[in-house]
Amino acid sequence: MKPYLREKKSFAFEDIPEDTCFEAGYLVTVNSGWRSRTPQIDNEKCIGCGQCYLYCPDGVIAMDGKTPVIDYDFCKGCGICAKICPKSAIELR
């Protein structure tokens, strides 16, 4: 199951569990604010090899068939995708 952003973000006394056990993959904050540069994919150049998908430390690139799609909510802009791309199809702007 892929962790995802939830509606309920703040927890009052009653909502806090007794134990330290909670639903897996419960996200309340995004990481987009970490980014100073944003990767942009040039779909003309992209050959759909999926290297960017494989090597993304945050797992924010998904392959929609042969097209990589970036989840900008959680991309930190590290630029590994741009470096790994064999066709230089990703640029950080």
Partner: peptide, 26 residues
């Protein structure tokens, strides 16, 4: 309070100053 493959759990997590106190009270 345990692993569950139907409804996966994250266990033994950190809790910052806002909530830690409540865990300790409980």
């Amino acid at each position: 309070n345990c692993f569950d493959f139907e409804h996966p759990k994250n266990i033994g997590f950190s809790a910052g100053p806002e909530t830690n106190f409540i865990f300790k009270y409980k």
